[in-house]
Design a protein around this nucleic acid. Structure first.
Length: 264
DNA sequence: ATACCTGTTTCCCG
DNA sequence: CCGGGAAACAGGTA
């Protein structure tokens, strides 16, 4: 589930917990999401603090707490956040629960590709401060795309779009949506993208990022009906523009859906 | 039973 | 040393 906009939506689900105290911290001893930190340190440091604010940047989430405490959450492939009742009892894939007086904040992740990080300090952690320019920022400039294309000239453009160092938050369905709109074959090598294609590509990166935030990010639903998004999940579906069958194949190590009549 | 999967890191190769 | 690609991580679902 979680790309740019789903991460923003998932993060907002904990909003009811903002400004409220964490009375108890429950961690799952078997969950791999704690691999970067001592699991006990979460319980020791966060018990009794107040959740003060939350942020997202690409696929990264950051939560700040009273007393200079911070946690980072990456949802991996199957992670999500939720609000449960105050009596909620932990289920198998619940990695982290925060008990508050009126509710329980939950982070679960069945496949455990997600990642939790604890940080202590006045300032937010370096890994957060050093994240690349957001695709939603005013300062997200076409130079970033130009630089990436030149530096990875032998990579299929589909694989390049998934590189979080340049396009933080871009995920598999967003990359397919961008390339379909920009009319570019996902297998084309990055170094061979011509000027006019590059212009369309940059425009559509911004369009899809902003469009996803406006629809999915706000309400947790789907993007607009006209998007490729609705036709890319299984074999046998048709291109929303040409009504021709779509191709689904592995490109850059990921399942890629594209229309040979639209994308050259 | 078998294949597949909205992500990232590590390892291996040229 | 670098870039690119495959494998590995793990469990639910079709």
């Amino acid at each position: 589930m979680p790309e740019l906009a789903e991460v923003a939506y998932s993060c907002s689900l904990w909003d009811p917990g903002l400004g409220k105290r964490i009375n108890q911290v429950i961690t799952n001893p078997t969950s791999r999401v704690f691999r970067d930190n001592n699991r006990d340190s979460f319980e020791q440091n966060l018990k009794g603090v107040i959740l003060s604010s939350s942020f997202t940047h690409g696929k990264q989430m950051l939560f700040s707490f009273s007393g200079n405490h911070w946690i980072g959450i990456h949802l991996g492939m199957t992670g999500n956040l939720a609000i449960e009742s105050k009596e909620y009892s932990p289920k198998k894939h619940d990695a982290l629960l925060f008990r508050q007086s009126s509710q329980t904040l939950a982070f679960r992740d069945p496949r455990q590709f997600g990642r939790l990080r604890l940080h202590l300090g006045k300032k937010s952690p370096d890994w957060w401060n050093d994240l690349p320019t957001s695709m939603l920022a005013e300062s997200f400039h076409s130079k970033i795309l130009t630089h990436a294309l030149g530096r990875h000239a032998r990579r299929p453009i589909k694989a390049l779009l998934l590189d979080q160092r340049y396009f933080p938050g871009m995920g598999n369905w967003m990359a397919d949506e961008v390339l379909w709109r920009a009319k570019i074959n996902p297998s084309n090598l990055s170094g061979g993208i011509k000027k006019t294609d590059k212009k369309r590509l940059f425009k559509q990166i911004k369009f899809v990022a902003h469009g996803a935030i406006k629809s999915v990010g706000k309400h947790g639903g789907d993007p607009p009906k006209s998007w490729l998004f609705h036709s890319r999940w299984k074999d046998g579906l048709k291109c929303p523009k040409t009504k021709n069958p779509l191709i689904r194949e592995q490109i850059g190590g990921r399942t890629t859906c594209w229309c040979p009549f639209v994308q050259k």
